[in-house]
Each structure stands twice: as structure tokens, then as C-alpha cells.
Write a protein that binds this DNA or RNA. Structure first.
Length: 587
DNA sequence: GCCGTTTTCGGCCCGACTGTTTTCAGTCG
């Protein structure tokens, strides 16, 4: 049984968690947590990386981590972790997940009250045992019960568009106040993370008291968690937490930068400042000289970066995944914008499971300023989606041909299909049928439980088919609902590059697939990206904006994205891929 | 536990809010 990346990540994360509960040195804990995080992004076969010893060359993996990972990769277990597990009941890891309950409390509850589970914690809060502990009180017990209640009733995470909509609603109310000078949504929403726990708003004002009072009194407030002078925190109806930070307008760029994060980006920025004899926080950038601190004024985030010897780093890239090193020597490449988008290449009509006619889709796309559109209904194996058999597909081809006679001037309509990749990697139509189309998208809609090896082979075989032009939603994940199927995406990316097949960034907010973390490397290997909402109705075109944001996060520029090319170049890309079918003996 | 253009030892990012204290620990981001 090969060692999966996820097993190693889970291992390191679990160790970090136990060390926290034990009350270990926080830097030791961070070493394990950072190791897990680094592995998430590291390319290549993790088992190979460990067994070859190359893992030791990766920053953050020192002697201790290398030894432990080697033991785990060789024997399948780790004595160090077993020993940690033996010290505490495993269910304490669950208790750690309760908001406002951290390692110190977990440890005390366990040692003093023998609490090992969330249920036992609730009981102890209710019967007064928690309140009776030194340093605790009735409020603490009540707060813990509330946290558990919220954790159980609300989803822990919110999808990007839901979270942003909730944040926008609050932001709009606050912007309407004359006391608010500047306000922005910061945090993970500004960085385009696929899902988020809360929203962070940053605003500048001369009158924090009034603004805060208004914030905690908004009609959408369900619970006020904190109400301070510079920071307050509410839970809005629907369950999402929204934090507001208020600063003086001169401090706004520092606060905006700080609360945009991400955490690791900030840590790296502060270390950098220290090395340069400066100090940076949400309250400013200071030159330090002994106890003397002199503020270095910055009018915006760009000047903050400049003061630290860096080119500007767009928010989407701030994850400490190489962007700081990049910005030391070069300007950030021009990332794709919404204005670059010229046409959508994956949508469904009412012939399969969409709700619109070809004409309506064309009119809508044209109305949005698009210059072309690709029609791609499901193929025959997708019974659940009313997939088209050969006869219906050819009939649709005729309809597209007819529709082309009355297209808006300069608009191009591509005839395609979203063709199922069958269990064995074969495509869902004969080559002669596929060859009649302008382009073919291939994707998996069945047998999600195949082994990683079989699924990878299956998809790669489809990419090697001469008609395949694009791989749609490469992992099949449905965020917060269904995990990705097991697949070696790095191998798939290599195959896509070798065969010049585009990979989709499916910007349906439930999919956002292939994940942003892979695009930087995929682009470097020459893979072309195609941003598509996989539209089933007209409103789905709105998802394109999300796709642009997430592809910016993946470091992509307009030239890397098929949909930003003009129709002629797109057609050329499809044609280059498509090869004429071998003459059939029957004809 | 990791790391090194101050360092192989001694650092490691910084601050707000809450609850329980009466100066601070815990938690969060």
C-alpha cells in the first residue's frame, strides 16, 4: 500500500495537536504544523521524497522530522506518535475543535474533571463543574455551551460566494455611515480561498465608538461575540462570523495588509522587517533603534511593500508560497482580469440537463460582451443528465449550424460535447462522431470509487485520445459535500501538457476544480487553462468572475487561459489537437 | 524543532478581547 500524501499530512497535524495539548514549546508545534502545510503544496511523490531522503532538502524539514517521516514511510507507523496517543484519550482531539476552547483548557478539563469528549464537556458546563474551576466562571461555561451549539448547528465553513454575499451585505451597511472613510473586505475572502470560516472587514474612521455600536446593532446580527473599541465580532443570521477592525485612516494600509493575511505571509513579512531593522504590525511599519520606534508612513499597501524592498504583491498571492521571494527581484506578472475573458466553452442546453436553448445562451453571452461560445451537452452515458445519443448529438450539430446563420456580428459558435470518460478510459462516442465536432471536452461522471491508479490511467488514456481538447472538473469534488476522487493530478497534468490538452478551472462555486494550488506548476509545464462555469442556466455565467479570482490566485495571466484568446486562436488550438479520423472501411 | 549576510545557540510575529482577576492567562487571527 503506497504512502499517500494525506496520510503524512494527517500524521504531522496530529502530532502538532497532541503537542499543543501537552503544552509543548510553541515553536516545536509550529515546526510540525508547518511541515504538514509544506507537504500540501510540495510536488512529486511524497513516499519517494521521504525514502530518498530528499525531504531533508526542503526548508522546514530538519533532522527530527526527516527521521520520523522515514520511520513512518518504512514501517507504516511511528513510535513517537503512538507514545503521544497513549498519553491522552483520542477524543480530546474533538474537544480541541470547540471554538474558544484551546489546548490549555482541554488539558485542565481532562486533568481536573476527567473530561474526554464534547458531550462530557457540555454536561460539566451544565452542572456547574466548569464554573467552579479556578479562573473560570459562569460566563466561561455559558460561552462554551454556545460554541458547541453553534459548532453543531452551523457548517464550520461557508462557500466563497455565500460568505462574500454575507460580508458584502454588512460592508454595504457600514459604508453608508458618514463616519466610515474607507472600508474593505479583507481576510481569506480578499485572498480568494475556496471556503472560509469568517469574514474580516477593515475600516477607517475618526469615530470608532459610533461605527462599532452600529456594527453590533445591525439587523442581520444574531450574536455579538466581542464588542471592543478597535475590534468587534458578530455572528450574522445564517451562522457566519463577521469581524470588524477599526483604525485611524493613516493606519488603514497597515491594517488592511495585516488582516488580509494569510497568516504565513504575515509571519514572513514580519521576519523580513525584523531583519531589516524594522517592525510591522496592523498598527504600522516602524524603524526600530533600541527602544525608539519611528513610524514609516505608507499611503497604501504598495508603499508598504516598497518600504520592505518588495514589489507589490496582489492579495490573491499572499500565502507565503514563493510570492515574497518573487517580489524581491521582479514585478508580479500581470494576472488575468475579468476584462480579458472573451468566451465560455462549457455549457449545457435543454437538450441534456441545462435549461436554455442555444439561441438564449448565445444572446446572453453576447450581451455580456463575449465573442464566442462553446455548446457542450452531456454524452450518452450520462443518463442521469439526459445525455445525447449519436442521433441527438448530430441533430444538435444541425441546430448549431442553423443558429450560425443568425449570430451577432463577429460572434463565433463552437460545437462541442462534454464526453464521458468511461470506466476503461474509452470515450463515449466513436471517433467518427467526435471528429465532426469543433471540440471535445472529456470528463468523469461515473465510477468515482476506482483506485487512484485506475482512475489516473483512465483519465490519462482519455487525454491521449486524438479528439480530446479539454479535461473538465479534473477531481470531481463537490466542496463541503463530496471529496475528490482518488487521482494523481501531477501525472494528469503531465499528460495534459504532453498531449496539449487544456485543463478546466470549473468555476462553479461548489467545484472550483482543479484547485488553485495546482495551477502555478501546471502553467509552468505548458498546460492551458480554461475557465468555465459549466453553465446549466443563464445565471451560472456569473460564476466566471469567481473563476478569474481563483485563477489569479493560481498565478495565471490572460495568455495562460484559453477563454482569453480570440476565437481564431481558440479554433486553431482545437484544430491542432483534433486529428482527422482514420478512413472507415464501411464508407 | 528549525535555522543562520548578526548567530551552530538563542532566537523564533504581534496585538485585541474576554473573563476572571486586580495584573494576567487563554484564545484567536
Amino acid at each position: 500500500m503506497p504512502l499517500a500524501r494525506k496520510d503524512v499530512i494527517d500524521l504531522l497535524e496530529e502530532i502538532a495537536m497532541w503537542l499543543e495539548i501537552k503544552g509543548e514549546n510553541s515553536f516545536k508545534i509550529r515546526a510540525y504544523a508547518n511541515g504538514a502545510r509544506t507537504l500540501q503544496m510540495l510536488e512529486g511523490d511524497v513516499e519517494e521524497l521521504i525514502l530518498s531522503g530528499d525531504i531533508g532538502k526542503v526548508k522546514g524539514f530538519g533532522k527530527a522530522l526527516v527521521e520520523k517521516l522515514t520511520e513512518f514511510a518504512t514501517t507504516g507507523k511511528l513510535d513517537y506518535l503512538e507514545a503521544l496517543r497513549a498519553e491522552f484519550p483520542e477524543s480530546l482531539l474533538e474537544v480541541m475543535k470547540v471554538p474558544n476552547v484551546g489546548p490549555k483548557k482541554v488539558q485542565r478539563f481532562y486533568k481536573e474533571l476527567e473530561i474526554t469528549s464534547i458531550d462530557e464537556l457540555v454536561a460539566a458546563c451544565e452542572d456547574g463543574r466548569i464554573a467552579a474551576m479556578s479562573g473560570m466562571g459562569a460566563k466561561t461555561a455559558g460561552k462554551i455551551i454556545d460554541s458547541i451549539e453553534r459548532m453543531r448547528t452551523n457548517a464550520a465553513f461557508f462557500l466563497f460566494p455565500d460568505a462574500r454575499a454575507a460580508a458584502e451585505a454588512v460592508a454595504e451597511e457600514l459604508r453608508a455611515l458618514r463616519q466610515v472613510k474607507r472600508l474593505e473586505i479583507a481576510g481569506s475572502l480578499r485572498r480568494y480561498k475556496t471556503h472560509t470560516k469568517d469574514a474580516d472587514l477593515i475600516a477607517s474612521t475618526d469615530d470608532p465608538e459610533t461605527v462599532m455600536a452600529h456594527f453590533v446593532g445591525l439587523p442581520q446580527v444574531d450574536i455579538v461575540q466581542e464588542h471592543g473599541q478597535t475590534k468587534s465580532s458578530i455572528v450574522v443570521k445564517g451562522g457566519m462570523q463577521v469581524d470588524l477592525r477599526l483604525v485611524d485612516d493613516a493606519m488603514y494600509p497597515f491594517a488592511l495588509h495585516h488582516f488580509t493575511g494569510g497568516k504565513e505571509h504575515n509571519v514572513a513579512m514580519r521576519s523580513r522587517a525584523l531583519k531589516m531593522g524594522m517592525k510591522v504590525s496592523e498598527w504600522g511599519l516602524f524603524r526600530t533603534d533600541g527602544d525608539e520606534e519611528t513610524l514609516i508612513p505608507c499611503t497604501d499597501e504598495a508603499s508598504l511593500y516598497e518600504a520592505l524592498g518588495l514589489h507589490y504583491i496582489p492579495p490573491e498571492l499572499r500565502e507565503n508560497l514563493g510570492e515574497i521571494e518573487f517580489a524581491e527581484s521582479a514585478e508580479c506578472p500581470p494576472l488575468v482580469t475579468e476584462d480579458d475573458y472573451r468566451g465560455m466553452l462549457h455549457c449545457h442546453t435543454h437538450a441534456s440537463d441545462g435549461s436554455e436553448s442555444i439561441e438564449n445562451l448565445v444572446a446572453h453571452a453576447h450581451g455580456l460582451g463575449h465573442r464566442y461560445l462553446g455548446i457542450t451537452d452531456h454524452s450518452k452515458s450520462s443518463f442521469q443528465a439526459n445525455g445525447l445519443d449519436e442521433e441527438r448529438l448530430l441533430d444538435q450539430l444541425g441546430q448549431i449550424e442553423a443558429a450560425r446563420k443568425s449570430l451577432p456580428k463577429g460572434f463565433t459558435l463552437f460545437a462541442g460535447v462534454e464526453c464521458d470518460i468511461r470506466v476503461d478510459g474509452e470515450l463515449d462516442y466513436e471517433d467518427e462522431i467526435l471528429a465532426q465536432l469543433d471540440f471535445v471536452i472529456v470528463s468523469v461522471h461515473s465510477a468515482f470509487t476506482q483506485s487512484r491508479e485506475d482512475m489516473t490511467k483512465r483519465v490519462i488514456k482519455a487525454l491521449e485520445h486524438p479528439s480530446a481538447c479539454m479535461l473538465a472538473h479534473p477531481t470531481g469534488r463537490v466542496l463541503l459535500q463530496r471529496d475528490a476522487y482518488a487521482i494523481d493530478l501531477h501525472a494528469v497534468i503531465d499528460a495534459a501538457a504532453a498531449n496539449n490538452v487544456a485543463i478546466e478551472f470549473n468555476c462553479n462555486p461548489l467545484r472550483l476544480d482543479m484547485d488553485w494550488t495546482f495551477w502555478h506548476k501546471a502553467r509552468d509545464k505548458g498546460v492551458v487553462c480554461s475557465i468555465n462555469p459549466d453553465a446549466h442556466r443563464l445565471s451560472n455565467f456569473d460564476f466566471i468572475e469567481l473563476g478569474i479570482g481563483f485563477c489569479r490566485k493560481g498565478w495565471l495571466a490572460a495568455e495562460d487561459i484559453l477563454n482569453c484568446w480570440d476565437a481564431k486562436k481558440v479554433a486553431k488550438f482545437f484544430k491542432a489537437r483534433k486529428q482527422p479520423p482514420k478512413p472507415s472501411a464501411a464508407k
